[in-house]
Design a protein around this nucleic acid. Structure first.
Lengths: 348, 348
DNA sequence: GTCATTCATGGAAACGCTACCATTGGCCAT
DNA sequence: ATGGCCAATGGTAGCGTTTCCATGAATGAC
C-alpha cells in the first residue's frame, strides 16, 4: 500500500511512460488526438503513480481556478446554509468549487474576505454585503476583474448585479394584514437595524402603518432570548401595551414566541404575532405562526445562475462589460397565514 | 476609477518602484528587513497598482495552499452547517480557507470530492464519510499525503483520526429512560439504516430493549412527512400499537411529531416520544420533546483542532506518521428530559 | 520515385513567485 | 589606510503545467 509521499508530477509520468510531457498533457486533457497505444501506456503510468494534475500549475499558466467565493454573515444561519447548498450544487455541476467565508456582518472582516479570495484568484463571487451602502466595499468590488453577484442585499449604486427578496413589499403586506385584523397598536421588533434587509422591512412596516393613520413603534434592542423576554415584559407592564407584534427576523420571532409563552401572554388573544421568514415547526407550534416566507431556494438559485451566466460566457477573463447590463432581480415573498395573527386555521 | 483589468504582477510592482523582485517579495512577506525608504516606495507601488499576490504561484513554488476541504453529506443540514461554521472560523484564524463539498451520502460522489480536493492540493481534510466501512474510501484516504480527520462517523480500521459522538450510549440511555417509564412496546424509527451513526443508535436501542427482555421493533421506511404519517397511521391501526416511539434523527422526529399531532394521537398519553438530536423549538412545542442532544459545536471544534494540530506541527509536508498516533475521540451525548417521554416538567 | 501534406510527438519557453547566492557599499577594528 | 563584515538589495533558477513550434514519419498525388 502506497502510503504517504509527495505528489508525482507530469514529467514523472512522462518518464515512466517513455513519452514527452506534451503527450501526457494531451492525454489528460483529452483534447488533441493521441495514438491509442501511446494513450494506453500513459494512462497506465498515471494509474501506477496515482498522478493527479496540480491545479496551481494550471492556474499559473493562465487558466481560471474554477473556484468561486461565497461571502456571507454566517454559515450556521439556515437562510445562508440553504443558499450555500444550492450554490455548491450548481458550482459543482459546472466543475467549480466553492470557498465559504463568513463575516459576522462586519465590514472589515468582509473586505478582508474579498481580498483573500482575490489572492486566491477565484473566478467569481457571491456576496451578501454586511453594509449595502459601504463606499469602501463598492469600490473594492468594482475594481475586481471577476464577475460578482450580490445576494439578499444589493450593493448601492446598482452596478453590481443582485438578487434580493422584496423586503419592503413583504413587510408592508404583513403589516397591512395585521391592520385588516383591526389591531391598532402594532409594534415592530427589528433586530440589528443597520442591515439592508431589516431597513427595508422597517420601511414597509412604517409605510403600511402610516397609511392607516396609526403610529409606528420600533423596538430595536432585542438580540437574544433574554433581551426579548425583558422587552416584552416591559411592554406589557406599560400603560399602552401592543395588541400585535411584527418581528423582523427568524431568531427574534422564535425568541418572542418563547417569551410570550413563558410569560403566559396568549397569542393571538392578547397579542397577535407575525414573523418575517418562515422556519421549521412554525406551522406546528400552537398557535401556528403566521410568517412572511422568503423564496430562499430561488434566491440562491438565481444568484448562482446569474454568476455562471457571466462565468461561462466569458471563458477568457470573466469580463462582465459585454454581458447584459447588471441585472437587479427582485423576488416576491409570500405571506403564510396561520393562526398567530388571528386568522382561523381555515383562511381569512 | 480603475475598473476591470488583469492582475498586476510582482515584477510590475518592482519595475514601478524601481527595485528588484526580491525586494518586493520581501516587503510583502515582511520577514527580512528592508530599508524603510525602499519599503515605502514599494508599498506605494503596490497601492497604486492594486497588487495582490498570486497564490497559485506561491503554491507552485512549493508552499502549501492554506486550504482545507470539508466533505459532508449536505450543508443545509444544521448539524453540518454548524460544524462548518466553527471549522471555518478556526481555519480562518489560522489563515486557512475552507472548501465545502457535499456528497448526499453517495460514495462515488464522495470519492470524486476527495479527488477534486486533492487536485487542488488542499492541505488537509475533514470528512464525514458516507460509508464508514467502504474499503475504497479507506484506501483512497490512506494514500493521501495530507492529514485527514473523520467527523461524526469514523473510517473503519481506525487509521484515520476521528471525532464522533457516542451514538450507542446515547441511544441506549434514551431507550432505558423509556423503559424506566414502563413502556413495553417501544418502536424505533430509523431513517436511512446504512449510515454509521444510525446503525450505532440502532445497536444502542436494541441492546437496551433486549436487556430488558423486550422485543425490538425497527421501522426503516420513513423518509419524509408523508411516509411518516403513513407508517404511523398503520401502526396505530394494528392490533399491537406502540406505547413509545424513539426516532433516530432530527427530521424524523419532527415529521413524527407533526404526524402524531395531525392524527390526534396524544403525546405522551397514548404514545411517548423521544428523538435523537436536539432542534430549535424542541423545548417550546407542546408537549416539549425529550431528545438526545449531541455536542455539535464541540464535535466541530475538536475535529478542527485535531486537524490543525497536524497541519501546524508539520509545516513542511503534513506527514502524519510522526505525530501522536491516530486519535479516536468519542464525545458524550446528553439526554434532555422534557415532557414527551412522560416526564413531568420538573424532573422525573 | 519524389514532393507536399498530414499526423503523432517532443523540446522548450513562459506563467508569477520565492529562495539561493552574489554583489554592492558602508562601517568598524586593527 | 586596509581588510573584513554586515546590511541591503538584485539576478536568476525552478516549481508543474500548457502551448507554440519543430521534427520525423508516413501517406497520397503527381
Amino acid at each position: 500500500m502506497t502510503k504517504k509521499s509527495k505528489h508525482p508530477t507530469l514529467s514523472e509520468v512522462a518518464k515512466k511512460a517513455g513519452v514527452g510531457t506534451t503527450t501526457v498533457s494531451r492525454v489528460i486533457n483529452g483534447v488533441e488526438r493521441v495514438e491509442p497505444k501511446t494513450m494506453a501506456r500513459v494512462q497506465q503510468a498515471i494509474q501506477a503513480l496515482g498522478y493527479m494534475p496540480n491545479q496551481a500549475a494550471r492556474v499559473l499558466k493562465g487558466h481560471r481556478t474554477r473556484t468561486i467565493g461565497f461571502v456571507i454573515p454566517s454559515i450556521a444561519d439556515p437562510f445562508f446554509s440553504n443558499c450555500a447548498e444550492v450554490l455548491q450544487a450548481i458550482a459543482r455541476s459546472n466543475d467549480f468549487l466553492v470557498i465559504v467565508l463568513t463575516t459576522q456582518n462586519d465590514s472589515a472582516t468582509e473586505r478582508d474576505a474579498v481580498n483573500i479570495l482575490t489572492q486566491h484568484r477565484v473566478d467569481g463571487f457571491v456576496i451578501a454585503p454586511a453594509d449595502s451602502e459601504s463606499e469602501a466595499l463598492r469600490s473594492l468590488l468594482l475594481r475586481l476583474p471577476v464577475p460578482i453577484v450580490a445576494l439578499d442585499r444589493p450593493v448601492a449604486g446598482a452596478l453590481v448585479p443582485s438578487v434580493v427578496a422584496n423586503n419592503f413589499d413583504g413587510a408592508q403586506h404583513a403589516t397591512r394584514h395585521l391592520i385588516k385584523h383591526g389591531y391598532k397598536r402594532i409594534v415592530c421588533l427589528t433586530g440589528e437595524i443597520n442591515l439592508y434587509t431589516i431597513r427595508e422591512r422597517v420601511r414597509g412596516y412604517c409605510d403600511a402603518i402610516e397609511s392607516a393613520g396609526l403610529e409606528p413603534v420600533l423596538e430595536t434592542s432585542i438580540h437574544d432570548y433574554e433581551s426579548a423576554e425583558h422587552v416584552i415584559k416591559k411592554m406589557f407592564h406599560s400603560p399602552n401595551p401592543p395588541d400585535a407584534i411584527f418581528t423582523l427576523k427568524n431568531r427574534t420571532t422564535i425568541d418572542t414566541f418563547e417569551a410570550l409563552q413563558k410569560l403566559g401572554i396568549s397569542i393571538p388573544k392578547t397579542v397577535a404575532l407575525v414573523g418575517y421568514d418562515d422556519f421549521q415547526l412554525a406551522g406546528t407550534v400552537r398557535p401556528a405562526i403566521t410568517v412572511v416566507q422568503q423564496p430562499i431556494y430561488e434566491l440562491g438559485h438565481v444568484a448562482a445562475q446569474l454568476l455562471f451566466e457571466r462565468l461561462l460566457s466569458s471563458p477568457a477573463s470573466g469580463g462582465s462589460a459585454l454581458t447584459n447590463s447588471p441585472q437587479q432581480v427582485q423576488l416576491k415573498t409570500r405571506l403564510i397565514r396561520r393562526s398567530s395573527c388571528g386568522c382561523s386555521s381555515k383562511g381569512n
